[in-house]
């Protein structure tokens, strides 16, 4: 991913900045530029989501996406955040066999990848199971 393309999304990637519609109050992540419900009458403002949620589904990746080869097997998941929106993320720091639908997850800060050996490093969010 080109540097400016990564860089301009840093607030969302580091701090879960999504959008909230001032008209219908719906919270969205990733951020949107127009409210899909209210369209032009909706007024979107940045909204910081709470870094907590639950696993809606998960999959154990053995054939990695480009750039993630060193991390197999890794758990890909859709997490529903407490604020409502869902996001696709990895579940890190776990034995893949531990993950179940409905598990509580906190969002943590992790290294996502790199632009080759001498390119920039990418950081962003991953989920981590919250053990009872």
């Amino acid at each position: 991913m080109a540097v400016p393309r990564f860089w301009r999304e840093i607030p969302s990637r580091y701090n879960l900045i999504g959008s909230r519609c001032g008209n219908c109050n719906k919270v969205m992540f990733p951020p949107r530029h127009i409210c899909p419900h209210c369209r032009r009458i909706g007024k979107l403002e940045p909204y910081k989501l709470k870094p907590r949620g639950k696993v809606v589904s998960y999959a154990i990746t053995h054939v990695a996406a480009n750039g993630f080869e060193d991390q197999v097997p890794y758990v890909l998941a859709i997490v529903e955040l407490e604020d409502g929106p869902r996001l696709t993320t990895q579940i890190t720091d776990c034995d893949p066999a531990e993950v179940k639908i409905g598990d509580e997850v906190e969002i943590v800060f992790r290294r996502m990848g790199e632009e080759g050996e001498d390119g920039v490093l990418y950081y962003g969010y991953k989920g981590k199971l919250v053990k009872p």
């Binding site: 999959a59 990746t61 054939v63 890794y74 890909l76 996502m112 991953k126």
Partner: peptide, 17 residues
Amino acid sequence: VYVGATFPGLYALMARR
């Protein structure tokens, strides 16, 4: 894709659910 999703991965999420 940025977080490591592949196409089989997305369909596996649907399958699991």
